[in-house]
Each structure stands twice: as C-alpha cells, then as structure tokens.
C-alpha cells in the first residue's frame, strides 16, 4: 500500500480524497479539466426515485468564506442515472463510486438503494438523511435518532453494499444520531451536510434564495465540521468520512486527525475545479512537513 492509501468499509482507496455529492455532478464536467481517476473516489449527485427539477432560482447566495445553496436535489431520477449517467461515467472514471441517495419516505430510500445495489460501479451507498433544502423529507430523517435508525435498517435490508449514512449538523446532539445509525447496522457515517443559513437582499428586503433558506458550505464551516467529526469518531466504532469546508491538503490531514478515514471535498470544487487533483499532489509534501509516513496511521490521532 502507498502512503496515501486508506481502506473504507473493506474497499481500498488510492487516497482519501473524495469530491462530495452535489459539487461534482456525475463526474464528466470535471473530466474536462483533469483525469479524475486520480481521485480516491467521488460521491455522485444525490439521486431520488423520480426525476426532480429542484427548487426555483435563485438557488445560490454568497457568504463570507463560503456559499449557501438551495438546489433542492435536482436529479434525473435513479432509472436515468443507471441508464445514462453511469454508462457515461464509465468512460471517464474506472473506480467504485459513492452513490448518494435521497428520499422522501423510507420506501423511497429503500427503492433507490435496491436499484443501485445491482450496479457494479457503485462501491458504497451514501444515504443522505440531511438535505436542508427539501420539505417533508431529507433532513427530517436525520434530526431524529429513531428515524435515522429506521432509514438505516430499511436500506441495509435491500443492499449488500456498504452503507454510509450522511448526517446533518442541524441537530442538538449529532453523536446520538450517529450512534443510532451504527446500532441499526450502518457501515460508516459521513458528516457534515450543510448548515442551514440565509441571506437578505438589502435592495429588495427579501431573502436572496427563492427557497428562503439554504445550506452553508465552504471554509466557513470547516471548524464546525471538524468538531463534529471529532465528537462522532470518538463515540462510534465504524469509520467516519469527514467533510465540510475542506480546501487544502492540511485540512485533509486535520480531518483525519479528528477521526476521518476518508475526506470529502465539496464547495471548493465549484470555485477551483482542479482542487482535488492539487490536494492529492500536495499531500506527500505536507505529510513530510509534519512527519507523517502513512495517512492511515493518523486516523483519529487527535482523539
């Protein structure tokens, strides 16, 4: 194994760098900028059972050191993902991906996961119970430990692939939600999704986003995400995938010291399309600077 290799739920990654869902489409936009096979893996755009247009626009607002989005899970639906997006992805990416799944009911989560379970390109199912931008679904499953556990069980019942439950930071006690998922059979936890936020336009005196509120991401949220990864990682025994504002090789190492086995990079991809490639290239030099021989040795090192 090389210096950057890590193992996530039994699948070996060349490095821990994984573009986060919703910031990397289905991969091919980025393949125009670089060979995306340098990535450890990537998490595809959140997929639901039926096609969704998502929220009305504006869906994007700027924030100090970050951005707020309220896209609302726009996606072509799982059948189109399987019929069109995955074959297109196969032309530019040859490693297992995290298939990110969203839903508005237990049945929908299970149905989407069941369809994706048969896809050889899918290495892990990342189940999003934390989208702050849709109503009657998404985050409501991730704010109650009992509901989070129920979604976990529903998904585990229909798939043999490792299940990563993606948690919301918009809760009082994220450790309780993580533990509930672990007890229900989750293979890993990823966190954090975005923090609920909003902006108001001073000229119109109205919210900037058509959805009124959205999710804050970017460097602004990194210390919050790091704290939650640290809290969760020391409280459970399954792996943690850390994300939230990660923008540099140093941030990746910090997340891993907090307890992350792998690290997702989100908003940074949207402003710097080559950032994941650059982070992977810079990691060995930054590891040298801090006396790190192998990344897998530092996971949870601060705990």
């Amino acid at each position: 194994m090389g210096r950057l290799n890590v193992t996530l739920c039994g699948i070996e990654l060349d490095n821990p760098v994984i573009p986060a869902s919703g910031t990397f489409g289905y991969g091919h936009e980025f393949a125009e900028f670089y060979d995306i096979n340098v990535l450890g893996s990537f998490s595809c755009k959140g997929t639901t059972l039926a096609p969704r247009f998502g929220n009305e626009t504006p869906r994007i607002a700027e924030a100090p050191a970050g951005m707020i989005n309220a896209v609302g899970l726009q996606n072509p639906g799982v059948d189109a993902v399987i019929a069109e997006e995955l074959p297109r992805l196969a032309q530019c990416f040859h490693k297992p991906i995290l298939a990110n799944v969203s839903g508005f009911s237990m049945e929908e989560y299970a149905a989407v996961c069941q369809k994706l379970d048969s896809q050889p390109q899918v290495g892990w199912l990342e189940v999003n119970i934390s989208c702050p931008n849709v109503h009657g679904g998404g985050m409501s499953f991730g704010t109650d430990p009992a509901q989070a556990a129920a979604v976990t069980r529903a998904v585990k019942a229909v798939t043999a692939k490792p299940v990563i439950m993606k948690l919301s930071p918009n809760v009082t006690d994220i450790v309780a939600v993580a533990k509930a998922c672990e007890e229900a059979g989750a293979d890993a936890i990823s966190l954090i999704n975005t923090l609920m936020a909003m902006r108001i336009d001073l000229k119109t005196r109205r919210p900037v986003l058509a959805n009124t509120t959205g999710g804050l991401s970017g460097p602004a949220v990194f210390p919050v995400a790091l704290r939650m990864v640290w809290q969760v990682a020391r409280s459970i025994s399954i792996p943690v995938v850390g994300l939230g504002g990660v923008s540099s090789a140093e941030d990746v190492i910090e997340m891993m010291l907090a307890g992350a086995t792998a690290v997702e990079i989100g908003a940074a991809n949207l402003v710097d399309p080559c950032i994941c490639k650059r982070i992977i290239e810079e990691l060995p030099e930054v590891m040298d600077r801090y006396g790190i021989d192998n990344l897998r040795d530092i996971i949870g090192g601060a705990n």
Binding site: T23, G25, E29, F30, R59, I60, N69, V71, L270, P273
Partner: peptide, 9 residues
C-alpha cells in the same frame, strides 16, 4: 454557483 455545470445552481 460554479459556472461550468457542476452545482445545478
């Protein structure tokens, strides 16, 4: 958001 098709903004 991004300007190149990734974020669906």
């Amino acid at each position: 958001g991004c300007g190149f098709g990734a974020c669906m903004g």
